[in-house]
Design a protein around this nucleic acid. Structure first.
Lengths: 152, 152
DNA sequence: AGAGCTTGAATAGCATGCTATGCAATGATA
DNA sequence: TATCATTGCATAGCATGCTATTCAAGCTCT
């Protein structure tokens, strides 16, 4: 197997790299979603942060970090921008002086339907020519890759 | 089909959203790659930018933009950081006073092998439990989603 | 030649993410 | 109870990306 000796010198083809394609795909998803929800005054990370809050208002920042799997500092900054934009309020948590309860404003509550519709439309645009089986397979493969990288 | 009427009000489940999974997957790829190439003094976007340059030294910024599909402003900033880090030089292009030829330093040329090995290792970590067929299918599905979003 | 369009880059400003720190409120334990 | 560890957040600093703007160099066309 002589070719194995030359593996490290072989051209690294980005079109065949899962990481390269994942980056490009994620940027296109974010860009497309941003265009669709910009009229609502939302940015992608704000939409993502609203998802758990629409289901359960008043959870803490640390709970959001757990559910969305981003770093605490990232969430703190996103919440600051959402507060600035009138989407959330940080209220003192009576039970624990360290944590704050994140509450949605009426404005944020009203965005649930249109924002959800926009996000579904973006997913549909990406998977337009996928069959139902292909969609399920694609989601399953992404979940496995995520789980595999999470192990480290 | 009454349920259709309630589609917009249905919970948007992030685990079933291709865009959400793509974002999470891309972040994990970038984080893992960054850890692996940090000892080389490289960041992910710098590695990506080196790929076309290792194949063809001296191309222009606009050519890099075309090959890597990022915005011109993004590339300009990445190149500024790479110049700062001693990876590239911007030289005047004799044929066209507007463009500059991007040339690799010996330091950048020497990083080709170890950086390529690191990137392959990250892809392998993500796809560790994928069969060869699954890997090919995964890459093909990502390329199709990218192409579909590119149409807009 | 001169006006106007096109192209290649830089810069400003902002959103997302990450790591590293620092700090205050809790909790656990000797 | 005094000390130490843990937990919840904020902030600083930086890398990537994007849009919008500006500027200079080339090109076109009359």
């Amino acid at each position: 197997m002589l070719f194995k000796l030359y593996l490290s010198a072989m051209a690294f083809q980005k079109e065949r790299s899962a990481g390269y394609l994942a980056n490009q795909m994620a940027r296109l998803f974010a860009k497309g979603l941003h265009e669709r929800i910009r009229p609502l005054g939302l940015a992608p990370a704000q939409f993502m942060t609203l998802l758990p809050l629409w289901d359960e208002d008043g959870i803490s920042q640390s709970e959001l970090v757990r559910r969305l799997d981003v770093e605490q500092a990232t969430m703190a900054n996103t919440l600051t921008r959402m507060e600035r934009d009138g989407l959330i309020e940080r209220r003192a948590n009576p039970g624990d002086g360290r944590s704050q309860a994140i509450h949605l404003t009426p404005k944020a509550k009203a965005l649930r339907d249109p924002a959800t519709v926009a996000a579904r439309a973006q997913n549909e645009a990406a998977l337009a020519d996928f069959s139902e089986d292909e969609r399920q397979a694609f989601l399953a493969l992404m979940r496995r890759a995520i789980a595999s990288m999470h192990k480290d």
